[in-house]
Amino acid sequence: MAHLFIDRAEAGALLAERLLGLHDPVVLALPRGGVAVALPVARRLGGVLDVLVTRKIGYPDSPELGVGAIAEGGEPVFDEQLMARLGLTTADLEEVVERERRELARRVRVYRGSRALPDVAGRDVVVVDDGLATGVTARAALRALAAAEPDRLTLAAPVGAARTVRMLRGEADEVVVLATPPDFRAVGQWYEYFDQLGDAEVLSLLRAR
């Protein structure tokens, strides 16, 4: 199987070329991996770079299985079809949601300190991730931002599952994805180098903007 991208930096540089024409955008990365993609995007577009912190809401019996997500400034968003298959209600997840709210707040403090999220009202806003698998995290981010009334809201990622990309088109003014491979299984399979980023690396990338 051929990789589409060497690493996130290359993917971000390619993605930026598809986003030209936006005026002084706010580029909001979904940490952690999205920050490495968003840095070359913000540089190429001459926009503000920051993070929009999100947290996955995991299935209590198997926390790695995401049944929803929450983004700072927004309410939880759930995968309703998956919830129905698992026989879950939102009430079943109250404890998990509260735990993830606390972790989200902690990460906001780590990445931004006391600095507020950039004001997006009336601005062109680009949400950047390193790939779109289930899309639930991106959907939570887009809904949180839509409530802040940006002028134009764009979701951008180098690669994504075709079904997910179709689903997300109704959540943004534009969805820009470079590739939707038919054999998509995981985001990392399309990168030659796909190391996990730590908080220190995220902060270093944000300082490099």
Score class of each variant (00 low, 15 high):
1 M>Q: 07
1 M>V: 04
5 F>E: 06
7 D>N: 12
7 D>R: 03
15 L>W: 04
15 L>V: 08
16 A>K: 01
21 G>C: 03
25 P>N: 04
26 V>Q: 01
30 L>W: 03
34 G>M: 09
35 V>W: 02
38 A>D: 02
39 L>V: 14
44 R>N: 08
45 L>I: 02
46 G>V: 06
51 V>K: 06
52 L>F: 10
54 T>G: 13
55 R>I: 01
59 Y>E: 13
63 P>R: 15
63 P>M: 11
64 E>C: 12
69 A>D: 09
75 E>C: 01
76 P>D: 11
77 V>Q: 09
77 V>R: 07
80 E>S: 10
87 G>H: 01
89 T>H: 04
90 T>W: 01
95 E>P: 00
97 V>N: 08
97 V>F: 07
98 E>W: 00
103 E>P: 12
106 R>K: 10
117 L>H: 14
118 P>N: 11
119 D>K: 12
123 R>S: 04
124 D>V: 03
126 V>H: 07
130 D>L: 09
131 G>M: 00
133 A>F: 01
134 T>E: 06
137 T>N: 08
137 T>M: 09
138 A>C: 15
140 A>C: 13
145 L>E: 04
146 A>G: 07
148 A>P: 01
153 L>Q: 08
158 P>N: 07
161 A>F: 02
162 A>P: 02
165 V>A: 02
174 E>R: 15
175 V>N: 03
177 V>R: 00
177 V>I: 00
180 T>A: 11
182 P>A: 09
185 R>W: 04
189 Q>A: 07
192 E>H: 12
196 Q>R: 13
207 R>L: 08
209 R>G: 13
